[in-house]
Design a protein around this nucleic acid. Structure first.
Lengths: 126, 126
DNA sequence: CTGGATCCTATAAGATACTG
DNA sequence: CAGTATCTTATAGGATCCAG
């Protein structure tokens, strides 16, 4: 009667603590295709500022989902890649990617229709 | 050469447009277990204020993921349930729930360790 | 090229009080 | 019970400028 109570209400809740930031799911998915340099990531995730992108990358690294490799070259060259842990998460993310692909048209229609509102996306804990 | 460009960079991006709000994934998952009345939902999602909870419920309904049934009784009785569309999304959400369950301990440890920071979770578009 | 440091604000979300 | 209406605030995220 001790470890039964978690700070999370369920597994999903826990997962959201790791990927519940605006660009994290996208970053992870992109890295799932292949390791990428900072610049590539920036172009892929487009719309994320340097500050936010780096901030997310650091958190992902701190959470053991990705690894940063600094080649110590000049000019600078850094590469980000998934850890096995991160890969397992990306695998779990796949269904959502597929679901989105399959229903993209529908989703897009309703979202565009309803006056292109921004999008929030906050989440529990972290 | 026209419908090839979407407002979304990928399927995941589109999905996030629907569930990228703090409590939506949780709400959907709870409804995936069974239809629930407002009060039940409120207790399940705990920590979400009435305002936010209702707001999210309305958006989910507008997006065709859930349906609201008002029994027109006194005292009021309203029930929320998943639509088939919503069910398909919940199914795609399952892997993330499982992943979170499996790694809950790890996640919790790192999250608690790093000074229990809040959690953001915004996301692209909507 | 890869970031660090600041400044700024939009807005999601929380708190409270109230109503049919 | 199931919301609505306000008010307020936290903070995630964006923009810019700078630096090794």
């Amino acid at each position: 009667m001790s470890d039964q109570q978690s700070i999370f209400t369920c597994g999903l809740h826990a997962t959201l603590a790791l990927i519940g930031s605006k660009w994290k799911p996208l970053i992870l998915t992109f890295l799932g295709q292949k390791s990428r340099r900072y610049g590539e990531l920036k172009r892929s995730v487009r719309d994320a500022s340097d500050k936010v992108l780096i901030q997310h990358l650091k958190e992902l690294e701190a959470d053991g989902l990705i690894v940063r490799t600094d080649f110590g070259e000049v000019p600078p060259r850094v590469e980000y890649a998934l850890t096995p842990f991160g890969e397992s998460l990306v695998a779990a993310l796949k269904p959502l990617c597929s679901w989105g692909e399959e229903n993209r048209t529908e989703i897009e229609a309703s979202k565009v229709a309803s006056r292109t509102r921004r999008i929030p996306v906050n989440h529990p804990m972290a």
